[in-house]
Amino acid sequence: MSNNPSSKVELTSRNYLAEAKMRNHFAVIDEPLDKGGDDNGPTPVEYLLTAIGGCVAITLRMYAERKGWDLGKITVNVNQKQELTPNGIKKSLIEEISFEKEVTEEQRAKLLEIAAKCPVAKMVKEATEIDSKITS
């Protein structure tokens, strides 16, 4: 088995309902009713936001454990922001991180630096190359 993460997504014949398989796990992807879907699951963008939030939280927990810091529960809220600019719509992400336990200003600064090292967020920030091809 390869160590490279992968996901297989199949779009069903039901509007925009897709089924995804990752290792031994399954997920459903859909669009909301007002976008032509049946709202059977999160949208692709919602999964991306979730992936970033999950990765940031896990990255912070791993770092805190190595440092012996008890952060308690880590919460990461990731939201997409859209603004109309003279060049069209600009999209960005807002990431809000909070900890159940108190952290010092020094810890806060270091944790913010570590959060930026989350591999999923780095993939998005660095515009990871995607090599697309059609196979039979």
Rank of each mutant, 00 (worst) to 15 (best):
N3F: 02
N3T: 14
N3Y: 04
N4L: 11
P5M: 09
S7G: 14
V9P: 08
V9Y: 04
V9R: 10
V9G: 10
E10Q: 12
E10M: 09
E10K: 10
L11I: 14
L11T: 13
T12G: 05
S13Y: 07
R14L: 13
L17G: 02
L17H: 12
L17E: 12
A18I: 07
A18Q: 13
E19F: 08
E19W: 00
E19C: 06
E19G: 07
K21H: 10
R23Y: 06
N24W: 03
F26Y: 10
I29K: 01
I29G: 05
D30H: 01
L33A: 12
L33S: 12
D34G: 06
G37H: 08
G37Y: 08
D38Q: 11
N40L: 15
G41D: 04
G41L: 04
T43A: 03
P44K: 06
V45L: 13
V45S: 08
E46Y: 08
E46N: 07
L48F: 09
L48S: 04
L49F: 05
A51R: 06
A51L: 10
I52R: 00
G53M: 04
G54W: 01
V56A: 01
A57H: 09
I58R: 07
I58P: 02
L60N: 01
L60S: 01
R61A: 15
R61H: 14
Y63W: 09
A64G: 05
E65V: 08
R66C: 10
R66G: 12
K67P: 04
W69P: 06
W69G: 01
D70E: 15
D70Y: 07
L71S: 05
K73W: 01
K73G: 04
I74Q: 00
I74C: 01
I74Y: 00
V76E: 00
V76F: 00
V76C: 03
N77A: 14
N77K: 15
V78H: 00
Q80C: 10
Q82Y: 01
Q82A: 15
E83K: 15
T85C: 07
N87L: 09
N87D: 15
G88V: 05
I89C: 09
I89Q: 06
I89R: 06
K90F: 12
K91W: 01
K91L: 11
K91E: 15
K91G: 09
S92G: 13
S92I: 08
I94L: 14
I94Y: 07
I94K: 14
E95N: 03
S98L: 02
E100N: 10
K101G: 05
V103K: 04
V103D: 09
